[in-house]
């Protein structure tokens, strides 16, 4: 049954690498205009989940629907063509390409090519620093600039939904704020968002709802406004003696 109230709908998804199972049955959904966070300790499968959704690795069981249609059997490039864009964690992009060349190339699918001009303007106004450095090669960019370019590349793909994997990894508080603003601006245009983050304050400032990931499963769902039980989060990080 297609369900048009959700951009993304995942049911009982399992995936992993070779002999190891990482995702042990994940179910979640992201509404059509919703911003959803994904929070959890290192190594508990957040990146693996995004990789499975974008079909960098194949799912072992379960279903993934995007805009009401099953995408779990589609190759990555087909998923991108439909507008589900995954901005990967710590993307080093294309080391020998210049910023401008990278952005132009990122508008690769026919749909993205049609939107190239408007999306490029949007990216350059969102991140003026990229505009100043248009001829600089990716490999020489600072961590913050690379993160901006990475998100910019995602926008050039003409997203109908964005999945960002730790966009502020290793950035200073000031840069984090800058990126938070940019991300808020993007989602204010009606692009649904799935945001993976380690910085709890950062996620909460940006999302409507949040899932806690624990050992390849969703352990809690937290709504905005609801009292955030910091104890839960502490437990996830430091272990819990409670039943």
């Amino acid at each position: 049954m297609s369900n048009n109230t959700n951009a993304l709908e995942i049911v009982d998804l399992r995936a992993g690498y070779d002999a190891s199972d990482v995702l042990l049955g994940i179910s979640l959904h992201v509404g059509l205009r919703e911003r959803v966070g994904l929070f959890g300790p290192n190594g508990h499968g957040k990146t693996t989940l995004l990789n499975t959704i974008s079909h960098v690795i194949g799912p072992r069981a379960g279903s993934i629907r995007f805009m009401g249609e099953a995408i779990d059997a589609l190759a990555s490039q087909k998923i991108v063509a439909r507008g589900l864009i995954h901005v990967p964690q710590a993307n080093r992009l294309f080391p020998d390409m210049e910023i401008m060349e990278t952005l132009e190339l990122a508008a690769f699918t026919p749909r993205a090519q049609k939107e190239l001009k408007t999306n490029l303007e949007c990216v350059l106004s969102l991140f003026p620093r990229l505009a100043e450095r248009r001829r600089q090669q990716c490999k020489t960019l600072s961590g913050g600039e690379r993160q901006m370019l990475s998100i910019g590349v995602g926008l050039m793909c003409a997203p109908r939904m964005l999945m960002l994997d730790e966009p502020t990894l290793g950035l200073s508080p000031k840069l984090k704020d800058e990126l938070a603003e940019a991300i808020a601006e993007i989602s204010s245009r009606g692009i649904p968002l799935l945001l993976v983050e380690q910085d709890i304050a950062f996620v909460l400032s940006l999302v409507d709802r949040m899932y806690l990931v624990d050992h390849g499963e969703i352990s809690r769902e937290i709504n905005r406004g609801a009292e955030v039980d910091h104890q839960d989060i502490m437990d996830m990080y430091f272990g819990s003696e409670r039943a």
Partner: peptide
């Protein structure tokens, strides 16, 4: 060219190329 640039992109980072919609 678009295809030529895609060839270079795949050489430099195939997984990033895949995520912008290039059929590697």
């Amino acid at each position: 060219s678009r295809i030529g640039r895609a060839i270079r992109a795949v050489g430099q980072n195939p997984s990033a190329a895949r995520l912008i919609g290039i059929d590697v």
